[in-house]
Amino acid sequence: MSELIQVQNVSKSYWRDSFEIPVLNNLSLSVKQGEFMALMGPSGSGKTTLLNLIAGIDKPSSGKVFVSGTEISNLGESSLAKWRANNIGFIFQFYNLIPVLTAFENVELPLLLTKLSKEERKKHVENVLNIVGLGNHMQHYPKQLSGGQEQRVAIARAVVTDPVLLVADEPTGDLDRNSATEILTLLERLNKEFNKTIVMVTHDPHAAERASVVRHLEKGDLVGA
């Protein structure tokens, strides 16, 4: 399998007032095409920061990040926004659905940035909502759905543009055990059946068990590699 993601000597620091807070220290990592990687580690270890750098929603202080051969760490904001729209699917811990939009409309959102016709968009949205098992809930608003269902809508939104990479930040962190299991099964299916590369941040060892590769972070460094 070829490498989809290459993180090369990346460091990242944040500034709080005049204090520099290092989060990642000269970290290198690679993720292969079709891999399902779990990133584990205690709070503050830099898991989410690393995920954000891989997803192109944050930039490293130093080092390089390549995804599908594109160096995303030196793209401008506008190019990065287009790149994200075409290449990345996001799954958040708190789903982050737009409350005034139905499940259908939430999933349709990323497609509004494409040149697909209304009919084509409808076909895509119905298809992915059926895959995540919400074909009968398309016109429901987020508040009319359970947590697990909301997360499935969020997953549908993440995959509707058929991105090469799915990034998930604690996707089961806000769910009960049964819902969490459903979500993990769905992610596993997307990885195996649809060959999606997934990088998932989690605290949960049960969630990590579903991944094909597990990496641990501590204080900004990968450990046990």
């Binding site: 926004a81 982050n96 940035l113």
Partner: peptide, 14 residues
């Protein structure tokens, strides 16, 4: 604020 962050994440531009 969070929703606009979601929009940006999804690729919505300035």
């Amino acid at each position: 604020t969070r929703e606009y962050a979601v929009f940006k994440t999804l690729g919505f531009s300035t």
